[in-house]
């Protein structure tokens, strides 16, 4: 049995210790918002947060995630109210949408570290693949979310 904390909830899963976190999330816990795209840490569709750090769950043995705080897209907000999700809707970013949950998880991690990212910051942090080619809107949405939180911070003093 391996104990996992996913989106604040404790789970105890009976899986082999080298099973990749992605498949535990998708197949054992039914959290299908995290996607399979390549299985080789190449595309980022499977991005989740481990103690706030973005990781590619398709190559992460579940044993390494045990005891850490795992956040998936389902844990970001259930109603799409996270500022990045709102910016994503405002810019109508997704096309097919398959890569987008991973994109958003990468962007969330970036904004945590760099609330006002430059284009270069975005280039370095958001290395996920979008086959539909939504990159221009992704960039714009990240800047919008950053500006919003910047002005909120300003208002709060």
């Amino acid at each position: 049995m391996i104990s996992l904390t996913v989106n604040g909830t404790e789970h105890s899963v009976d899986v082999s210790s080298d099973m990749r976190l992605l498949w535990v999330l998708r197949d054992i816990l039914g959290l299908t918002g995290t996607k399979f795209g390549c299985g080789m840490s190449l595309c980022g569709a499977c991005t989740v947060h481990l103690d706030g750090e973005p990781v590619r769950s398709c190559v992460m043995p579940v044993s390494i995630a045990a005891g850490k705080k795992i956040t998936t897209i389902e844990g970001l907000s259930t109603d799409g109210s996270h500022p990045l999700q709102q910016a994503w809707v405002a810019h109508q970013v997704p096309q097919c949408g398959y890569c987008q949950t991973g994109m958003i998880m990468s962007a969330v991690a970036l904004l945590k570290k760099k609330p006002q990212p430059t284009d270069t910051d975005i280039n370095e942090a958001v290395t996920n693949i979008c086959r539909c080619g939504t990159y221009t809107r992704i960039r714009a949405a990240i800047h919008t979310a950053a500006e919003k939180s910047g002005s909120n911070n300003g208002m709060k003093g």
């Binding site: 299908t32 918002g33 970001l76 907000s77 809707v89 970013v93 949408g97 949950t101």
Partner: peptide
Amino acid sequence: DIPDKVTG
């Protein structure tokens, strides 16, 4: 289709 694509 977009709102549900940003929440998973």
